[in-house]
C-alpha cells in the first residue's frame, strides 16, 4: 500500500510517491528542474549535476535523491541558477559545439537549456579539444566533439537494448564514450533501430542522413523553451 509523501519545492507543497526521486516528483507536479543526464525510464546516474537542488539545505542531485516526508527543496534560487549556468557553460567549452551548423540544433537539450538560461556565449575560455568522429557504421555516426558524457546511450544500450554497445573509457579529461569493439562502431552489433540512438541529448550519436529534415520553426525547442512541456502538463495542485 503506497502512502503519499508531502514535500515542498520552492515553498509550494507537492505530493509524491515513496521511492520517487525528487526530479520525478517535481515532474509529476509540473515543476521543472533542469537536467541533462536524467532521462525517464533509465537508471539514475547523477553525473551532470544540472539538477542540483538544496534538499533540507544540502546540495544534492534531484535525479538521484529520494523524496522523504516533509522535505524542503529549493530549486529556482538565484545561486542555484547561477551554479547551473556555470555547468552549462563548462559543457560548451569542454567540447566543440558548433550549434550554427549542428544537425541537432533546435532539438538539442544542451542548446535548449542554454537558451532557457539566457546564455549567448560562454564566459569560460574554449578548450577546443581534439575529438574524433566515428562514421564507420553505415547508418550511425558518433561525433565525440559534441559528447557531454551523460551516459544516456550507455544505459539505454545496456538496459533497454540489452546490448552494451557503449561504455565509458579513460579518466578525467581523457574520458570518452567507447564502443564495444577494438576501435570502430562498425565492428559492434549497433543497429539503426537501437533505442540508444534516441537517448542522446546532443548531436553526438546520430542516425546518418536524417539531418535537417525538420524545418526551422517546427523543431522541438523552436517555439517553447525546454521544460515547458513539464510545466504545462504537470499537476501543480
Amino acid at each position: 500500500m503506497s502512502q503519499t509523501i508531502t514535500l515542498k519545492i520552492d515553498g509550494v507543497e507537492i505530493k509524491a510517491q515513496p521511492g520517487q526521486k525528487v526530479i520525478e516528483a517535481a515532474d509529476a507536479a509540473g515543476v521543472y528542474i533542469p537536467r541533462l543526464c536524467h532521462k525517464p525510464g533509465l537508471e539514475p546516474f547523477g553525473s551532470c549535476r544540472l539538477c542540483t537542488v538544496l534538499a533540507n539545505g544540502r546540495p544534492c542531485s534531484a535525479c538521484t535523491t529520494p523524496v522523504v516526508e516533509g522535505m524542503v527543496v529549493e530549486n529556482e534560487t538565484e545561486s542555484l541558477q547561477n551554479f547551473r549556468k556555470q555547468i552549462i557553460e563548462m559543457l560548451f567549452v569542454e567540447g566543440n559545439h558548433f550549434c550554427m551548423f549542428c544537425e541537432k540544433s533546435g532539438n538539442c537539450e544542451l542548446q535548449a537549456v542554454a537558451y532557457r538560461f539566457g546564455i549567448t556565449a560562454p564566459t569560460f575560455p574554449y578548450q577546443w579539444p581534439h575529438r574524433e568522429v566515428d562514421a564507420s557504421h553505415p547508418d550511425i555516426l558518433i561525433d565525440h566533439n559534441r559528447c557531454i558524457l551523460c551516459g544516456r546511450c550507455v544505459r539505454t544500450s545496456r538496459d533497454l537494448d540489452g546490448k552494451h554497445v557503449f561504455d565509458f573509457v579513460g579518466r578525467g579529461c581523457e574520458k570518452k564514450i567507447g564502443v564495444n569493439a577494438d576501435s570502430r562502431l562498425a565492428d559492434t552489433n549497433a543497429d539503426i533501430s537501437d533505442q540508444a540512438l534516441d537517448a542522446c541529448p546532443v548531436g553526438a550519436l546520430l542516425r546518418k542522413q536524417t539531418a535537417y529534415q525538420t524545418p526551422i520553426g517546427q523543431r522541438l525547442y523552436d517555439l517553447e523553451p525546454i521544460g515547458s512541456e513539464i510545466e504545462s502538463t504537470g499537476n501543480t495542485n
Partner: peptide, 14 residues
Amino acid sequence: QGRPFWEMPVAVQR
C-alpha cells in the same frame, strides 16, 4: 574535412 557530407549546405554557408 572529416565532417559528414550532409552538413555541407548548412556548414559552408557560414
